[in-house]
Amino acid sequence: MPHVEAHITGTVWKIEVEVGDTVEEGDAVVILESMKMEMPVESEESGVVSEIRCVEGQAVSEGDVLIVLE
Results as ranks from 00 to 15, higher is better:
Ile8Asn: 09
Ile52Ala: 14
Ser61Asp: 10
Thr9Cys: 00
Pro2Glu: 12
Lys36Ile: 00
Val55Leu: 13
Asp27Lys: 02
Glu24Ile: 04
Thr11Asn: 05
Glu18Lys: 09
Glu51Cys: 00
Glu33Met: 01
Ile31Arg: 02
Val68Ile: 15
Lys36Leu: 07
Glu70Thr: 07
Ser34Pro: 07
Met35Pro: 02
Asp64Gly: 05
Ile52Pro: 04
Met37Lys: 00
Val49Asp: 15
Gln58Phe: 13
Gly47Ala: 03
Glu42Lys: 02
Glu38Val: 04
Ile31Lys: 00
Val17Gln: 12
Glu18Ser: 13
Glu38Trp: 05
Asp64Tyr: 04
Met1Lys: 11
Asp64Asn: 05
Glu42Pro: 02
Gly47Glu: 02
Ser46Pro: 04
Gly26Ile: 03
Cys54Val: 12
Ala6Arg: 08
Val4Asn: 03
Met37Leu: 00
His7Asp: 05
Val23Phe: 11
Val23Asp: 06
Ile52Lys: 12
Ser50His: 15
Ile31Ser: 00
Arg53Asn: 14
Pro2Ile: 05
Ala6Lys: 09
Val19Pro: 10
Val23Gln: 14
Cys54Ala: 03
Trp13His: 04
Val68Cys: 03
Ile8Tyr: 05
Ile67His: 07
Glu70Tyr: 12
Glu33Trp: 06
Ser61Val: 13
Leu32Asn: 07
Val4Arg: 05
Gly47Val: 04
Val60Ala: 08
Gly26Trp: 00
Ile15Gln: 01
Met1Gly: 10
Gly26Arg: 01
Gly26Gln: 01
Val29Leu: 10
Val19Ile: 11
Ala59Lys: 06
Pro40Ile: 05
Val19Leu: 08
Val41Phe: 08
Ser34Tyr: 13
Trp13Asn: 01
Asp21Cys: 07
Ile15Cys: 02
Val68Tyr: 11
Gln58Ala: 12
Glu44Ser: 01
Thr11Gly: 02
Leu66Val: 11
Val48Arg: 10
Val60Asn: 15
Gly10Gln: 13
Glu62Ala: 13
Gly63Ala: 03
Gly57Met: 07
Val23Lys: 10
Val65Met: 07
Trp13Met: 01
His3Cys: 11
Lys36Asp: 09
Glu33Ala: 00
Pro40Tyr: 04
Gly63Thr: 07
Met1Phe: 15
Thr11Phe: 03
Gly26Thr: 01
Val29Asn: 12
Ile67Cys: 06
Val12Arg: 10
Gly20Arg: 04
Ser34Gly: 03
Ile67Tyr: 06
Glu25Gly: 09
Asp27Pro: 00
Val49Leu: 12
Val55Thr: 15
Leu66Gln: 11
Gln58Cys: 12
Glu25Thr: 14
Glu56Ser: 04
